[in-house]
Structure formats: C-alpha cells, structure tokens
Design a protein around this nucleic acid. Structure first.
Lengths: 190, 190
DNA sequence: CAGCCAAGAGAGAACGGTCTTTCTACCTCC
DNA sequence: GGAGGTAGAAAGACCGTTCTCTCTTGGCTG
C-alpha cells in the first residue's frame, strides 16, 4: 500500500465522521475499515479528539484552497463571490453531500470551551472575513446600499441554510434557492 | 409532586437533549435529573428512541401552536409571515437558544429510514407548506414576481441559516441579518 | 363503607455490548 | 537497533435494557 497508516486512518475516519456523525463512529469501526490496529491509531492520534480535530482541519484546508482559487481566478470581486457561491452549490449537488462538516460537528459539540468548537469558530471567522473583504471591494466602486459586514452575514446565512436544508429538502430545489438569493444580493448592490 | 413521572422524564430529557445533544445524553443522566428510576422510565418509553420521538413531537407541537397563533392574529398574510419571522428571531434571542432542535437532531440521525429523520421531514414539510400557502395569498392580490414555492424556500433557507448560525456567530447580528432578509423578501413581492 | 387488587412509581442489581484507552508481544524495514 | 506497523488481549467506564422486589395509591366491588 502506497499510503501511510496515518493517511489511511484519517481519510477513513473523515469519511465515516462526515457520513454518520462523529459520536456515532467508534475507533473499532475506523480500524476495521482503514484497516489498521489500535496501537497504530493511538500512536498517531493520542486521543479521538485529535482525530476529530485533524478531520476538521482537513476540511478547513480544502475549503480555503477552493475559496482561494475562486478569488484568484476571478476578474472581479463580484465574480469571486459568484465563484464561491458556485462552490457551495457544487457541494450540494454531490451525491455524498451530507451537510456542512463544521455545522454538523457544531451540533454534536455544544460546549463553547471545546477545542472542536473553537476550530469551528476559527473557520467561520475566516470565511465571513473573506466574504466581508470581497463585499468591501464591491462596495468600493459603486454606491453603497449597506455595510459589507451585513452583506457577508447575509451570504453566510443563506449558505448555512442551504448547506443544512439541502440534505432534507432536496439539493436541486435548495441549490436553486441559494443561487437566486445570491444573485439577488449581488444585483441589489449595484 | 404535582407532575407525573412521565412529564418529568420528558421535560428533563428534552432540556438535556436540546442543550447537550441526543447521543451525548444517556438514560442515567436523565434518571438522575428527573428524578426517576429505570423501571419507571422504561414503562413509559419502551426505548430511548421513543423518548427522542416524544421530545421532537413536543417541539413540533409548540412550533405549530406558535405559527398557528401568528397566522390567526395577523390581519394579512404579510403580517403573518412577519409574525412567523418574529417568532424565529425571538428564539434566537433566548439565552437558552442552541439552534433548531430538528436540525440538530438531523445532524445526529443521518439515516433517511430512521423514524427520527422521518419526523423531522414531516415537520419541515408542514412548515414550508404553511409558508407556501401564505406566500400564495400574498401573490394573490399583487403582481407576481415569482412562485410562492420559491419564496417559501427562500424563507426557510434564511431561517435555517439563522437558526444554525446564531449559536456560533452571535444571536444579535444573525437576528438582524434575518430580519433584513425577510423584509427584503417581502418588499420585493410588492 | 370496607376491603382489595391492579397499576404506577421507587430502588437497585445486573445483563451484554460498545466506548476510549492502555498494554504486551512480534514483525519488518530503513 | 530503533521507529513504525501488525496483532490481540484487556482494562474501566458507560451505553441501553431487563429484571426482581417493595411501596404507595386510587378505584372498583362486595
């Protein structure tokens, strides 16, 4: 096998955590599907919490890469916001889609002091910060109809709703609602 | 004690489920805080799943009562939609707020065949159906700018996002974003 | 009205299973 | 030879669930 045991454990665990929930997946399941053994597991991840943090860290990394690529390849902040929105609707359309990994994790980790929840907050702060910057650029060269922070909050609210509702109400309908909402938000600013 | 054991068990379990998550709360915890005993518990709820369903059923009942009251006391469908929106922002402002009980439960029960998930889908179908009817009435006596289903989907998407994000980004900011979004949606229809 | 009995509730032991975690032992490959 | 991997036992805690036993209470019957 070309992959290391750590990689195998993390990717297997990530898939299971996302598909079935974090609390619902035990170490036994992960070891059975990785496959690996307890000793190897606990050599790489001192506790299950470290594995959970590594899982969310991986999602965070991939999300940042997607957003960064969307920003860099877009000629205008409008297009960048549209590209980020398209990344959201792409997620919804994935047959393996099961909601936002961070929001799902937040439902399972209510304690604000928990490191998992702190990682979630960090991720969201980065996301909304990036959006606020982009909306700021949009506002920069057109008459302002509000504050960039409010526009970013509106974007995030729609995104969270779409990510949460798509698995329940159907990805197509919710994706269309999100696309219409984002287009409305962007046209409203001009 | 004036309350029955069943009531005590259900209200205690409901508070714990909502505050800490369903999987995170064991029967032991519930019995300790109710207080009651195992035999009594299992006499009223053959399994923990029955308790979970009773918990969500209670939330469903209360939500329907609030929405029904909002509709009945509102002179127009616009006002009814505003009243339902106000009920949402009221929820967000509650210090005990910890997200939508149904969305939190959905994150913990991914299996579509699970009775818990079916109850969640029922609740959402009723909610979006009620909104669709109200938007249909709004569209009825004014030039239409879209379909009632789309407006209802947009409302639900914003609601889901607000309910999910308020516990992470702050209830005041998210509540304000939702209020602005709803007002924008309603003025857009006229 | 008296008596009784079924039902609800309390108390606690105990089941099998699964959880996370730790341990020892052996292998293998740089 | 040491670091990483394999293998498996086992700890200790907690999970949902079942069981037996006792006490109270309310309502029906004679």
């Amino acid at each position: 096998m070309t992959t290391t045991a750590r990689e195998r454990l993390l990717t297997t665990a990530s898939a299971l955590f996302y598909r079935e929930g974090i609390r619902a997946v035990g170490v036994e399941r992960i070891l059975g599907e990785a496959p690996s053994t307890r000793a190897t597991f606990y050599r790489h991840f001192p506790s299950k919490e470290d594995l959970v943090l590594a899982y969310l860290h991986g999602v965070d990394d991939r999300t940042r890469a997607v957003v960064q690529a969307a920003v860099e390849t877009s000629p205008s902040p409008d297009d960048a916001l549209r590209a980020i929105g398209a990344a959201v609707t792409d997620d919804l359309a994935d047959p393996a889609f099961r909601g936002c990994a961070f929001l799902n994790a937040a439902a399972e980790y209510p304690d604000p002091a928990d490191p998992v929840r702190r990682l979630i907050l960090e991720h969201r702060a980065w996301y909304v910060g990036t959006l606020t910057e982009l909306f700021g650029e949009v506002f920069g060269d057109s008459p302002r109809r509000g504050r960039p922070e409010d526009a970013a909050a509106h974007f995030v609210m729609m995104r969270d709703g779409a990510m949460t509702g798509a698995g329940l109400d159907g990805a197509e309908a919710v994706g269309a609602a999100f696309r219409r909402g984002l287009e409305g938000l962007l046209t409203l600013l001009h």
